[in-house]
Design a protein around this nucleic acid. Structure first.
Lengths: 209, 209
DNA sequence: ATAATGAAAAATTTATAAATTATTCATTAT
DNA sequence: ATAATGAATAATTTATAAATTTTTCATTAT
């Protein structure tokens, strides 16, 4: 198998492929979109796609990675450094979930893509990286909150992980769709209320016996 | 279609069917177990099963309902009324999750059953009832905690819902299996640490602007 | 060199027939 | 009456062939 292209121009082409694939996946679904369709939309032959992606799944992974990058960018953009740590923790989670919910509303077919992702090793790696980045961000925020006495937790990293686990349900497209998209925002709000109360509280994340 | 049997003896037969079906489903999986197998295990004809259950799915629903009943019984049995509300909240969640994890370890095939459940209206009703019962129990515990000044939340029902949503991830068999059963217990513990800290904290579940 | 093609091979999906399984029901037994 | 059967029918699954799609690669173009 030939090694993938790595030049400037190749990166541009790769981007275009991901853009076109995103359109087709959201419109027709992952399985109903074939390599030929993507190639056609990109004005190239099917074979040429393999100079940029190892296979069809890899395109799916790139589409999802791009979605995660958008969520991250949206969070970076919207993050208001002047706000208290709690507001920013809430924003980080809420923005990501709302982004996903919006996506699910206007393109329910992406559930299929997210299921493919779960089934592949590399797909899980893509998700894993995003989760990791998110945890790092949360940990930073919790540390800040602890530093300025807004939060009161012993182990900032554990508390951040707790926030992440306590909202993990809201990051699973399949679960959201089943729960009912309309209930998501309210349920996330009460959950964040309690988690944030925990971050502020005195005895949170004390070592257990 | 004939109406289902409703006598004493019929209930006994129904129980036996559910018991045998549970064995077969956990051993061979829901799809690989056929009505004939269940009937054979019960020493009756396939046709006769339909006097006790509307169809195969209904047997699956009953198996899951029974599992939930076991979890509930286990919780009732293990619940120590002398303990503080927090310990009991933790126990309610932890016992249920551990029950599920144990089940998943010794019978990974039940994931298939839980997926069938999600796909059927009646299956979701079975889950919904269990979730409802659980919420009621949590709400009662939170109220008790509030009453004896152990917890400090405005809206006990909202706080209970937050505990439920914040641990919902840990109740989804598919999600648990993917997350890795070995990580579940530790991750649930930190999550409960933070949620319980929230229950104890001063400003939890205040009305938002 | 890098980019792209199009035809060939491999893998997957769809269509269809055959076989199995789920479900109903007329009949028999208790 | 209630319980159960087993044969008949309906629905589903499996097996197989045909068609499509994915992937590779030798070749051409820039």
């Amino acid at each position: 198998m030939m090694r993938l292209q790595a030049s400037e121009a190749a990166d541009e082409t790769r981007d275009e492929i991901v853009r076109q694939a995103t359109q087709l996946f959201t419109h027709y679904g992952y399985s109903k979109t074939n390599i030929g369709d993507i190639a056609l939309a990109c004005d190239m032959s099917a074979g040429n796609l393999y100079r940029y992606f190892r296979n069809k799944q890899a395109i799916g992974h790139a589409v999802v990675a791009r979605f995660f990058d958008e969520v991250d960018a949206c969070i970076e953009r919207g993050m208001d450094e002047s706000q208290c740590a709690e507001a920013r923790v809430r924003f980080v989670i809420t923005a990501a979930v709302e982004h996903t919910v919006r996506e699910l509303r206007q393109a329910p077919k992406i559930v299929e893509l997210s299921e493919m992702i779960c089934e592949t090793e590399e797909g899980q790696a893509v998700v894993g990286e995003h989760v990791q980045r998110n945890l790092a961000r949360l940990t930073g925020l919790v540390r800040e909150g602890v530093a300025n006495r807004e939060f009161n937790v012993n182990d900032a990293e554990a508390a951040a992980r707790a926030v992440q686990m306590g909202t993990k349900f809201f990051h699973i497209p399949f679960a959201l769709a089943q729960h009912g998209l309309d209930r998501v925002e309210a349920d996330l709000a009460v959950t964040l209320d309690l988690l944030c109360a925990g971050l502020r509280g005195r005895a949170a994340c004390q070592p257990r016996d």
